[in-house]
Design a binder for these strands. Structure first.
Lengths: 302, 302
DNA sequence: ATTATCTATTGCGGGAATTGCAATAATGAA
DNA sequence: TTCATTATTGCAATTCCCGCAATAGATAAT
């Protein structure tokens, strides 16, 4: 019983039971421990807390004061512990999520509404950006990313869903060009490049669905942006060929505004992945939101 | 660092320094201790408080909450400790004193006024009674008593002053009786007995100032009371001989209302004594009041 | 008064827990 | 890729703590 709090608890037990021996019984220890703990507490404070003979124990004025006030403190501290414990199990607090921009605008509204309906106690912040953020520094509880493979950004992650991509262009554009039958033909086309760091060249690794042959197509691009939706609109406007996730262009394909180019060739797989700060075990709110997104995204036809 | 508080302090140091190693330097211990303390605290709470990689440490939401609240608690507890420490040195609080009835009415008003002027921060309660009170049970900080010798009532006491007593009677009474020349003659007198337990007999041990001979005088008494002032008034009224402290009868003797009987024979010494509950060291207020009484009483001519 | 009983304290020995060191794994920068 | 820094963990030695028994003290009962 060397800790300060343990000494206080011991002292309070003596005060309650008005006796060292009785306190020892209650605390399940020996009277000698009680003596030592109280003595050390008194020594630490430099004040006698208990007036004691071998037959009776009563509080000094300092002791009465100390007992009253520490009792309140202890209760408060227990309450803090309890409410802190609740963070692991209860759905509460603030949830801060980073997500890709286009993905967010296309698919997040539904899951977020569901989540908020189920867990109204959780305050939710969603930051939409395609930049790879430092999840620790920016203090996010999770970050959704669409990328080829888990980078070294964060230690723990969870793959959620494969995101299909397609090469698309507008029928107008295609009818004005020679049709492309191989990735090599792309060099003769205007390509629309998604790029976060606005470099002037890009490479599309295309694999044939049947033969498995991979051809790296070094494409010169006519237009580049770090926003998929804008690229899609440019493609619709007949500005060239774009490599975009299906969830962005699916509607335009259905309506005939865009058609797939080289449909037998596939770009490298990319995944919707959730990244987390180094939690050993996910907090309840984070876990719940992750599951909410996961189930919602699995129902989508991408 | 097994105590709860010590764990919290360690955790807060890590939060402040944002690093286990830095916290170890500040706390003057090794990083391994820090790791273990924080781990045990997290285990106790069932919640992860710190998100940590080997390069960076940051608070979880639970950790932020816990840090904020425990910081406040710790500050409060430190303040409690400080204010408790003050009980030993500072003059404050409540001082509860028991004193003899007649002594109190005759001599306490002065010292009390002095004390209150010097130490206005101390609230003072004086209970006047001649009954031997249980100083612990009644929760007095000190008890003044006038008695032959320290009884087993209390462990610690301090003799303050010899209280002279005299056998006295009124001139009227004495002129109507045969003069007493020896304690043995008292059996023929009306004696006025001070007694707390109203028995019907009393013994006055009288010692000759010169020869040192002690004669126990078994006196039959005409009147008994547990109040010295009333006995004095009875003596003045010529009701008989009383054995009373000089501080009660001095004025009556000076004015000639009472005269000393058998002035060469002295009763057993009795002392004004201060009794204390089992303090190992007297609290400041108790000490101060004791000294105040002691110096005041030493100036009196009893 | 004296004895008996209950109580707080203290010395001591065995044992458990904690500490610090060194090795390991992991992370971020050069 | 390498390197430096950092949190973690295993291990050994030490310290510290606990409980038992003996002691002194205080109250109740005889």
């Amino acid at each position: 019983m060397n800790g300060h709090l343990e000494q206080i608890r011991t002292f309070l037990a003596v005060a309650d039971q008005s006796g060292f021996a009785k306190a020892a019984v209650v605390l399940g220890t020996s009277p000698s421990s009680i003596t030592r703990a109280v003595a050390e507490l008194e020594k630490r404070l430099g004040v006698q807390l208990l007036k004691r003979t071998t037959r009776r124990v009563s509080l000094t004025q300092a002791g009465q004061n100390y007992a009253d006030r520490t009792r309140a403190i202890l209760a408060e501290l227990d309450q803090i512990d309890d409410s802190t414990r609740a963070f692991q199990t209860a759905l509460q607090g603030h949830l801060s999520v980073s997500a890709p921009l286009s993905f967010g605008t296309h698919f997040l509204a539904g899951p977020i509404a569901d989540f908020r309906k189920i867990h109204p106690g959780v305050r939710l912040s969603i930051s939409l950006t395609d930049q790879f953020v430092d999840i620790m520094q920016e203090d996010f509880d999770m970050a959704l990313r669409i990328s080829a493979a888990p980078s070294d950004l964060s230690t723990i992650w969870r793959k959620m869903r494969l995101v299909r991509r397609s090469l698309v262009a507008s029928p107008d554009y295609l009818s004005a060009q020679r049709p492309a039958t191989s990735p090599r033909d792309l060099r003769d086309h205007d390509c629309l490049s998604y790029t976060t760091n606005l470099a002037d060249t890009d490479t599309w690794q295309l694999t044939n669905n049947n033969s498995g042959v991979t051809i790296p197509a070094h494409v010169r691009f006519a237009f580049a942006s770090d926003n998929g939706d804008l690229l899609a609109q440019m493609a619709i406007a007949g500005q060239g060929i774009a490599l975009l996730p299906d969830f962005i262009v699916a509607q335009a394909i259905d309506s005939g505004q865009l058609v797939r180019v080289l449909p037998t060739w596939s770009p490298p797989e990319i995944w919707l992945t959730a990244y987390f700060p180094p939690y050993q075990k996910l907090p309840a709110a984070v876990e719940a939101f992750t599951i909410c997104i996961e189930s919602s995204v699995s129902e989508l036809q991408l």
